[in-house]
Write a protein that binds this DNA or RNA. Structure first.
Lengths: 203, 203
DNA sequence: GCCGTTCCCTAACAAGTGTTTGGTAGGTTA
DNA sequence: TAACCTACCAAACACTTGTTAGGGAACGGC
């Protein structure tokens, strides 16, 4: 009468990632603080207390979600930055890589967008602030290099430009859905086209 | 022995706006769900229960903050849309007006950005969904008109363009601080310059 | 002086929160 | 068969949450 259940849900390291994935999904949808561990457990088909067999706190789930994402992000970024490309090509590669990360870690990116600002003040999440500093150095540095080398306009406030480019890319995580009309690369291509050349028709 | 207190803090309708302003500030900084009424009361220099003399719930504070903001926003938008401007001029006016609203209602905008998505599902906040529909109609319509009239490029996914423009503008609320280097109008000018003409140097 | 209004405090409530403890079904190993 | 480990459940814990009820100080009008 009862629904048949798989005798063994999944091997242990796999199961952990599954639970983190569902937790990330709920965190992204409802917000971290608005999400109860009972809700996560519900979504995972178990009871709240059972989560504590796999993780030692709700916060450590969030921690693992964010740090895993950032690790992979910087793996990609560092590769791009070490390639020795020109400013324009570097920006293009960074934007493309960013959209790939959004494609792979959409919930994590959404959580990062919403919560990182006030999380970064807590010691446990200090790496968020570190990452942001590193992030700004990479992007802003590339833009500045682009201005001196004549690739980018010099009549704009460079910090405004930085925030402009940064935000346009990462906010996409709030509406992006994997399996949509466009691939991450296609979205990156069009975004780059808009950011670099504008949406107005050249006359 | 007790600290001297102002006999009357402020007249009654003024006081209400003061409390909403501090509440909005805390909501924006910490997130709505992460904010306790005790924290708001603390910031306002009173105890939690005392807030309920002015408002009947925490949710109604949020409601009033958001609806007040949206009312004023649409007042400005409707004026622009009724002016009968061309597509490019309409976009310029909408962007400028948006940055003015961010300047005036920064906390409300930040809250709206973070919470509107999952608030819109609740009946009480149905007006958020309505507003978003109206918003999309105005912006997307203007962009489409601009494409057919030859003001904007026709080789871009128009919905992608819409989200691009919309996001670049409103995300600014997350970093904007009134009294900074640039006025809202100056920020709007530079943003429009980037969105319309791009950040790459024309050759 | 008395009354009423405004605005806040004190103290508590019930519901919901993250977390812990002890137990146990089922599989694997010896 | 016995011992053991994995992955979960059942039930409770301490605490925080939004909210309420009753009271009281300050002040103005009469």
């Amino acid at each position: 009468m009862s629904t048949k259940k798989k005798p063994q849900v999944t091997p242990t390291p796999e199961r952990r990632r599954e639970l983190l994935a569902t937790a990330a999904e709920v965190f992204a949808a409802q917000g971290y603080n608005a999400t109860t561990v009972r809700r996560i457990a519900d979504e995972a088909g178990m009871l709240a207390g059972s989560l504590y067999y796999h993780f030692d706190s709700k916060e450590s789930m969030l921690d693992e979600i964010l740090s895993t994402f950032l690790d992979e992000l910087w793996q990609g970024y560092d590769e791009v930055l070490a390639a020795g490309l020109g400013p324009r090509e570097t920006i293009e590669a960074l934007v493309t890589e960013s959209f790939r990360e959004i494609d792979r870690h959409r919930p994590a990116v959404a959580i990062y967008q919403k919560e990182s600002k006030h999380l970064a003040t807590q010691p446990r999440f200090a790496y968020l602030a570190d990452s942001q500093t590193k992030f700004e150095k990479a992007w802003l540095g590339t833009l500045e290099r682009g201005v001196t080398e004549g690739a980018f306009r010099d009549d704009l406030d460079i910090r405004l430009t930085y925030r402009f480019v940064r935000d346009t890319v990462w906010v996409a995580a709030s509406w992006y859905r994997p399996g949509g009309h466009h691939s991450p690369e296609e979205i990156a291509r069009q975004y780059l086209s808009m950011v670099l050349d504008g949406i107005a028709l050249r006359t």
